[in-house]
């Protein structure tokens, strides 16, 4: 423990003393905020125009807008913070690790803290905190602009309900876990360009396609629910992807989703530790 607490302080300073964290945070807030505002205004305008051609949901689900039950409008808009924004904490986590390889700072880092496991644990602690911070920032964006859009068209932003705030809490947890997944991926793929490309390609392209494919067969849906993005959406409890892929898709319970995401982070980190972190630093 004697090396761990100092290592945590050092990792906080490392993260705060370069520009990357706030550049990513600003892009994240602007991106998910504008998306949430745009979708809220778009759906509101569609509903108000009376030209909603989408088939209504199953009987008993009540009024829908573009096929989305009105009850789910606000959660779907707010959860864009995680459903779209989760890539940002993952990038931050991966960069905190790959920076050490890229700029050869592993040398002074391991000189100051020869217990290498303590360094990696410290990165987990610090990235969990920054991931949570990103989650709060992203929610400020989606709730701020999203609630404004919903309210403007007469929908209830349901900000007074405890369920909504529970969703916010789970969203913050999801973002924190994604930063840990990023740390794990960064140790497995120490090349900075390599790990950034993998994160972007997987989250923006590979996983959406796999989840879409999961909608075509039962067995595929069983597997697809364990994909990291699907687990994350299950943890948060609402997602534009879940709504789009229809009611037939499988989903984990929120706590199962959280555990699956944590398992990904832990598995990646342990594999990376064994494969790369213990190596000679030359």
């Amino acid at each position: 423990m004697s090396a761990f607490v100092p290592a945590v302080r050092a990792e906080f300073t490392k993260t705060l003393s370069t520009r990357m964290w706030w550049i990513l945070a600003i892009i994240l807030v602007a991106y998910v905020g504008l998306l949430a505002g745009g979708i809220a205004f778009g759906l509101g305008a569609l509903d108000a125009s009376g030209q909603d051609d989408a088939p209504p949901g199953p009987v008993g689900m009540g009024e829908t807008v573009a096929g989305i039950p009105v009850d789910l409008l606000a959660p779907v808009v707010y959860s864009l913070a995680t459903a779209v924004g989760y890539v940002f904490p993952a990038l931050l986590g991966a960069m905190l690790v790959t920076n050490e390889f890229r700029h050869k700072t592993l040398t002074p880092t391991f000189l100051a803290t020869p217990r290498r496991g303590a360094v990696l644990s410290a990165k987990w602690v610090v990235m969990f905190a920054f991931g949570a911070l990103f989650g709060i920032a992203a929610l400020i964006g989606t709730v701020g602009l999203g609630a404004a859009g919903l309210t403007a068209f007469g929908f209830d932003p349901i900000l007074g309900e405890s369920d909504t705030w529970a969703l916010f809490g789970r969203a913050v947890l999801a973002m924190a876990l994604w930063a840990l997944v990023g740390v794990g991926l960064g140790v497995i793929v120490p090349s900075q360009v390599g790990s950034i490309v993998i994160i972007l390609a997987f989250t923006q392209f590979v996983e959406p396609i796999l989840r879409l494919a999961g909608g075509f067969a039962d067995w595929a849906a069983q597997v697809a629910q364990f994909l990291p993005g699907a687990a994350s959406d299950a943890l948060v409890g609402a997602s534009i992807y879940t709504v789009m892929s229809g009611a037939g898709s499988e989903s984990l319970d929120w706590w199962q989703g959280g555990l699956v995401l944590l398992a990904y982070a832990a598995l990646f980190t342990v594999i990376g530790y064994l494969a790369n972190w213990r190596r000679d630093v030359t």
Binding site: P6, A7, R9, A10, T13, K14, S17, T18, R19, M20, N99, H103, T105, P108, T109, L111, A112, T113
Partner: peptide, 17 residues
């Protein structure tokens, strides 16, 4: 790290040790 100042570089390792 090229984006970190000398002072911050030293602060990081002072804290770590």
């Amino acid at each position: 790290h090229p984006g970190r100042s000398a002072r911050d570089h030293l602060r990081v390792y002072a804290q770590a040790s």
